[in-house]
Computed example of a mutant assay.
Amino acid sequence: MTDSAAFGALKGLRVIELGQLIAGPFCGQLMADHGAEVIKVEAPDREDPMRKWGQNAPLWWPVVARNKKCITLNLRVKEGQDLLKELVRKSDFLLENFRPGTMEKWGLGYDELSKINPGLIMIRVSGYGQTGPESSKAGYGSIGEAMGGMRNLAGDPSTPPSRIGLSIGDSLAATYACLGALLALRHRDQTGEGQVVDSAIYESVLAMMESVVPEYSQTGFIRQRTGSILPKVAPSNAYPTKDGDILIGANQDSVFGRLCEAMSRPELAQDPRYVDHYNRGENQQELDDLIADWTRDKTADEVLDLMEKYAVPAGKIFTAKDMMENEQYKAREAIVKVDHPEFDKLYMQNVAPKLSKTPGHINWAGPTEMGAHNQEVYGSILGKDQCELGALKEAGVI
């Protein structure tokens, strides 16, 4: 097994990852993808639930735990807390997504850990942040998506607010946590000082909300669900074909003109109802209906070939099958096969973004065994011998 520190822009940096599920571990995945040595900590008697998650098979863990070294450690006992402090002394980051106050309860708050390692960057991911009247509440991604405003805008206006099909709130909080960690690293490089990165799920969702807040504060307008359209921006929608919906985006004047040429209806570009952005927006529904009447008698490939010929942005709505078969995915190795002792057809998304000088890499999938790297981490990094490790295991510390 190759050491994750051998590649990538973050090589030479060590992350201790605590917590479980998505909001913290996805941040760890991003850092491990780019070469950080991420040491994933699980309780000896309580595996991360991600080991069991997935449709038809537990296939999420191999992705979210890829490139990580997995150890077991009981943080509820003093011996475990002391071992963590030893690791903190030799690490750059500590990543956790427990409910605020948990680390302090264990004597592992930043005030204590920074005494051990003043350069430590502590990455904290939670539902509501580390401060404020709601900080101590349990917070899942779905609740953060609702509080941050995303759920109100997801789905069709005729239905209740929808989940978009992914744990986007958790992943956004993890992504912002990773961004914050790298900003804090830049500060540490200049000053030697560590700090706390406080990433809240609801605030990470809020950061994606475009001009929703100023629209309300300035004009009193509250955005609502609009389904597949972008209100007053047309044509930009999903359109039916003989074998499935496709997306067409032709809202710019020149692009709309090319769409009209592709449809053999060049006169539409000069029609007063559609002649410019404003009028197309005012007549959005009838324009969408007109385009749909044209697309539904053709196959998706027939329409897409015409869109490519006339340089009109368009595309299929991809499933995993489409991703696996697509030539653009193949050319950029956006999906790669990863060796695994149990799954012989384990493909997953590759590292993003691509760096020209220090590209990230997937060296291994999430380890199947709990404590797979106990020997390496406790032995090589902390210098514990077999006798000490045996005693720690016997006491339930690891």
Rank of each mutant, 00 (worst) to 15 (best):
T226E: 05
C178D: 00
T175M: 14
G54M: 01
L304R: 11
A395V: 08
V303M: 05
M209N: 06
E286R: 00
V88W: 04
D297V: 13
F93M: 12
R265E: 12
G144F: 03
T175D: 07
N67P: 00
A9T: 11
Q55G: 01
Q252R: 10
L355H: 05
G139E: 05
M122Y: 12
E17P: 11
S356A: 13
H340W: 09
D344P: 07
S211Q: 11
T241F: 01
D245E: 11
K137P: 00
G24C: 03
D92W: 04
R76K: 15
V77A: 01
E42Q: 08
V377W: 03
T319A: 10
D3L: 12
D111H: 10
A372K: 15
T159Q: 11
D82Y: 09
N326R: 06
L120Q: 08
Q130Y: 13
R76Q: 13
T226C: 07
C387S: 15
D82C: 10
V212G: 00
E86M: 14
Y110H: 06
I143R: 05
T191L: 09
E282Q: 15
F221M: 04
A207T: 04
E325V: 05
G107Y: 10
N251E: 09
I123S: 05
M50D: 01
K321E: 15
N56T: 11
G192A: 14
F98L: 09
V397R: 03
L59V: 11
L30Y: 03
K105A: 14
I121R: 06
K242R: 11
A352V: 11
A311I: 10
K69H: 08
P44N: 09
E193K: 15
D322Y: 11
Q218P: 00
L183R: 05
A269N: 06
P353L: 06
S199A: 15
G132T: 02
G155I: 03
A177H: 04
G35K: 04
D301M: 05
A269F: 02
E342M: 05
T299N: 02
S114H: 13
D92L: 06
E308L: 12
L120K: 08
P25R: 04
T241M: 06
C27S: 11
M208I: 01
T175H: 11
A269G: 13
G249Y: 00
K68P: 01
T131M: 09
M150E: 10
Y110W: 12
L355G: 02
C260A: 14
D293K: 15
K232G: 00
M150R: 02
V64I: 15
E342R: 12
P62L: 13
I123V: 15
C70Y: 02
N67R: 07
R151L: 12
V38F: 02
R188C: 10
K384Y: 14
V64A: 04
G8Y: 05
A65I: 08
N152L: 07
K69P: 02
G180Y: 02
E79I: 01
G249A: 15
S211C: 02
K78E: 15
L13R: 08
L183Q: 09
M147R: 02
D33Q: 10
A300G: 14
A395T: 11
S254M: 14
L75Q: 03
S254C: 01
L206A: 14
A65C: 06
K354M: 10
T191H: 10
M150N: 00
G227N: 03
R76Y: 06
M208R: 09
